[in-house]
Computed example of a mutant assay.
Amino acid sequence: MTPDDHLLDIGCGSLRLGHKAVPYLKPGHYWGTDASLALMRHGRLHELPDPSALSEDHLVQDAAFAFPGIPETITLAIAFGVFTHLPHADLQTALTNLRRFPTLRATLFTVFLSDAPTATRQPDGVVTHPDRPPYHVPQAQVAATIRAAGFTPTRLPTLLPRGQVLWSAT
């Protein structure tokens, strides 16, 4: 990522990434979405070194991954720790809807992986499930979902907290 990129932070919450990205990116290049507008507004006021650096209209309430009002200039998207807590169909919806951004180079997101049809203990001890949060999905299903949305899947080797696996959809 460079300061010239236009970042879409999906499920940005209280700006865990935003408090670093907003000062790094050129003004107006950060957009955040989350199911809770109140949480994003709280993060803007309490997490950003300078809340005026992020226009409140760049925080969009969006629980459906429709990305309403987000400009076509988005070049990168990230969803860290979002799809570990939602059914896999939401990942398919998000990736499909991200196709509308013509200059999008990559979307990074995390999931828990397992082929097990029952609860699975991840390497750090967290227990994931196929049918309730925190969710796990088979690696082949993640790759197929990315391809079905028109992207190329890459499982990245980065080690993440709690055993989450980082993927890139390019």
Rank of each mutant, 00 (worst) to 15 (best):
P71A: 03
F65E: 09
D124S: 11
P133W: 08
A169W: 04
L39V: 13
Q164M: 11
G125P: 04
E47N: 14
T33W: 00
R44E: 01
P123T: 12
W31H: 08
G81C: 04
S114D: 02
A169C: 04
Y135D: 07
A94R: 05
A149L: 07
L59F: 00
G163V: 12
F151I: 14
R155C: 12
R105H: 07
T158R: 13
L156G: 01
L91Y: 03
G11K: 10
D124Q: 13
L45P: 06
A79L: 02
A140K: 15
R162V: 11
N97Q: 08
R147T: 14
Y135K: 11
G163N: 09
L25F: 10
V137W: 05
L91A: 09
H29T: 08
L159Q: 15
A148I: 08
Q164E: 11
A144E: 10
M40F: 04
D50N: 14
L37M: 09
F151A: 09
G11H: 08
L59D: 00
L166N: 02
L159N: 13
V22F: 02
P68N: 06
H88I: 13
P71M: 01
L39G: 09
R44W: 02
Q92S: 14
E47D: 10
V22H: 04
I10D: 00
A63M: 10
H58F: 00
P161V: 11
L59W: 03
P87R: 15
I70W: 02
G43F: 00
V111N: 13
I146S: 02
L95F: 04
A64Q: 14
T118L: 15
A140D: 13
P157T: 08
V60N: 01
L15C: 05
L15N: 02
T110H: 00
I10P: 02
P87N: 11
L17E: 06
D9H: 00
S55K: 14
G32L: 00
H136L: 07
Q164L: 10
D50F: 09
L54M: 04
T110K: 01
L108F: 06
G28N: 08
S52M: 10
V127P: 05
A53F: 00
F151D: 07
P68L: 08
L113F: 01
I70P: 00
C12G: 10
